[in-house]
Design a protein around this nucleic acid. Sequence first.
DNA 1: AGCGTGACCGTAT
DNA 2: TATACGGCCACGC
Length: 105
Amino acid sequence: MKNKSTFEKIYDVVKKIPKGKVASYGQVAFLAGNSRWARVVGYALHRNPDPGNIPCHRVVTKDGRVSSAFAFGGENEQIRLLEGEGVRFSDGHVIMEEYQWSCDI
DNA sequence: AGCGTGACCGTAT
DNA sequence: TATACGGCCACGC
C-alpha cells in the first residue's frame, strides 16, 4: 500500500460523488482529509490528469455556483451537464440544500 | 531547497 | 448587500 498523494485522495473523493449530486470544494477537501484543502482541490481539478474518470463538473463552490474561471467548455456547459444528471439550477445556482452530496463519515 | 501559483473559504469594512 | 483582503495547503519549476 502506498500512501496516496493529496491529489489522489481528492480525486478519489470526487470520483465518489454520486450522479445527480454535487459537492463543494470545501466538502471534498474535508472528505479528503482536511477542510483547508479547498484551494488544493481546485488546483487538483485544474490539473485534472484524468478528466474521463473525474467528474469535476460535480464540484461547485459553496454558493452552489460553478467556478467562473474554469469550465472545460464554459460555465454553461458544466451547469448543463449537472442538469443532465437531474440537478436543478435556480437563477444560475444549484440548490445546495437539496443536491449537495451528503456523505456519512 | 525555495518561490510562485491557484477552479477556495471566511471574516472584515 | 457587495467588495476586499488574508489565510490555509499542496504542487510545479
